[in-house]
């Protein structure tokens, strides 16, 4: 095995110190020049913590509003050690933050908190997702006529779906735009559709049937399957309203014929 170089050794010690205050770091290698080497290293400990915590603050503003700055910053420190940054791009830092929040005994009183974080991470995914040309209502109608048999509908790459047992969208809204009145927390969970509109992330709560329909489409299942999934939640589900809603928001990018042997679902 190749011996680790002097530089590698130095960088290992240095980075360990940035992640853990108990790690002294390569103090013998640092020239003090009028200041303790530990004090010089502390400047880097702080800026590393600040840069990474700053990325979490940007990605999780509602979580921060809900728990307060002090607890958020303390949690960010813990998260940094549990899930060190794996990328030179800070937009990638925070993928495990929701799970980490859920693992903390301190957040047990806020059972919805991890799902608010999940929603915020999805918002970040939506903001950064690839661009794609949307199908216009006319193009959609023409494609619909042209395809015979079972078909698949491709959603825009910026579409995300999130179902939570908590009223996660209401809570997010409240955290971001707190009003005078106390939040009357709905008992039921919420199903959220996220997408990008004019460069901004948009969200809406969907009923169970519409959510099931869009979810089936997102999974690449046939339109008939999507309809069946929706009808299982609500008899008389109006597929046309659901699909035209998606078309109007520019969330459909392609229609394709599906070579599918499955029995199409039907709605009576």
């Amino acid at each position: 095995m190749r011996a680790v170089s002097a530089l590698h050794e130095l960088q290992r010690g240095f980075l360990a110190a940035l992640y853990d205050d108990r790690e002294p770091g390569p103090l013998d290698a640092i020239a003090g020049n009028g200041l303790e080497p530990a004090a010089r290293l502390r400047i880097y400990r702080r800026s590393c913590n600040e840069n990474q915590t700053g990325a979490l603050r940007t990605a999780f503003p509602a979580v921060r509003a809900l728990v307060g700055e002090d607890f958020f910053d303390q949690t960010a420190r813990g998260y940094r050690s549990a899930h060190p940054s794996r990328s030179g791009n800070l937009q990638a830092f925070g993928a495990h933050f929701a799970d980490y929040l859920g693992s903390l005994p301190e957040t047990r009183g806020l059972p919805y908190l991890p799902d608010v974080a999940r929603l915020e991470w999805l918002r970040q995914e939506v903001a950064l997702a690839a661009d794609a040309e949307s199908l216009s209502p006319d193009a959609f109608a023409q494609a619909l006529i042209a395809i015979d048999g079972p078909l698949r509908i491709d959603l825009h790459p910026g579409v995300r779906l999130f179902a939570s047992p908590h009223a996660v969208l209401t809570i997010w809204d409240y955290a971001m735009h707190p009003g005078e009145a106390r939040l009357q927390l709905p008992e039921a969970g919420e199903r959220v559709l996220l997408w990008r509109e004019d460069g901004e992330v948009a969200m809406a709560a969907l009923d169970a049937a519409s959510f099931a329909c869009v979810e089936a489409l997102a999974q690449g299942r046939s339109l008939d399957d999507a309809l069946a999934a929706a009808c299982a939640r609500k008899a008389g589900f109006d597929l046309a309203v659901c699909i035209s809603g998606l078309v109007e928001r520019g969330l459909l990018v392609a229609l394709a014929s599906l070579d599918c042997r499955e029995e199409p679902g039907s709605c009576r």
């Binding site: 530089l7 590393c48 940054s85």
Partner: peptide, 18 residues
């Protein structure tokens, strides 16, 4: 960064031949 772990900061190098 080192060993796949990133500090997300501009960290100093020793001014060595290496």
């Amino acid at each position: 960064a080192i060993d796949g772990r990133h500090g997300n900061d501009l960290l100093p190098l020793p001014f060595t031949e290496e």
